[in-house]
Design a protein around this nucleic acid. Structure first.
Lengths: 153, 153
DNA sequence: CGTGAAACTCGGAAACA
DNA sequence: TGTTTCCGAGTTTCACG
């Protein structure tokens, strides 16, 4: 996907990532342009899929989600069918915030956000009952030092 | 932080996380209420810090950020001063999207998004020149199976 | 391709039930 | 607390320079 983007586009992206609730006038002022050109570019970027949906950042603690685990998974199974079931299991579980297939020793990493250790264990038991995994290591986060949704543009 | 939240609040949060660009009327329709009550609750949730700033989801690939690493860090240093410098280094680098202090063998995990392997190495070299670390393992993501900013509510 | 203005929509507040 | 109403502000479109 090769999208042509100039410096103005990048400035707009930065402004939107910082706060998507700003008015067009406000953004235009920040990036040194004016309303209509900014709006046209935002529309283009949306159509090109560079800008996706907008969301709100929600505080996990306020929802009682006080535990965050990174789960390192090794498996001995690499057939297409197994992968399909594994993927389906991950997608079905909202506590799985991220899932990556990795290169190297460890096959997958998950980021799982739950209320407490018990809730993680429930998740873990449910997962291994659905798909066979060879080895699972859970890393418990003690403190979220940095969390940024913004990409460096 | 104990915020009282009923089912309606949760429905509103779900709607906002799915798409923060919706109008109040639209959200009200979805959650089975009407404009003013929804707006009052959104305001309360914002004031309580449950709802933070709104952002847009940007496609990393479109920006040329094609590599994602999870970095496992062990250190032998645990003094306050070291931690402070380490934290400052992480905060200063936009390619670090997440940083957690962990319980157990591994002390920290980072999620780092960069253009390519070379860019990761630049980051790595810069980091270890700023702060001493005992051991670093980088896990390279081959495929992002799931990425969700929405918390289960 | 940027400017300025038009029309329409939405957010936010106030008054009422 | 929810409903109705209202206005200023913001979004989106368009005709023009």
């Amino acid at each position: 996907m090769g999208v042509r983007m100039d410096e103005l586009d990048r400035k707009i992206l930065r402004a939107l990532q910082a706060d998507a609730g700003q008015s067009l006038d406000e953004i235009a002022r920040q990036v040194g342009s004016s309303k209509t050109p900014v709006w046209n570019r935002v529309r283009k970027l949306r159509e090109a899929g560079v800008i996706g949906p907008s969301t709100v950042i929600v505080d996990p603690e306020a929802l009682g989600l006080e535990a965050c685990f990174f789960v390192l998974i090794r498996t001995s199974e690499h057939e297409a069918d197994w992968q399909k079931r594994f993927l389906a299991a991950l997608k079905a579980r909202p506590e799985v915030q991220e899932a990556h297939r990795l290169a190297g020793e460890i096959d997958y990493i998950l980021k799982v956000r739950v209320a407490n250790a018990k809730a993680y264990d429930d998740f873990y038991q449910a997962l291994i009952s659905e798909v066979r995994v060879f080895n699972v290591t859970a890393l418990l986060s003690m403190e979220e030092l940095k969390a940024s949704t913004a990409l460096p543009v």
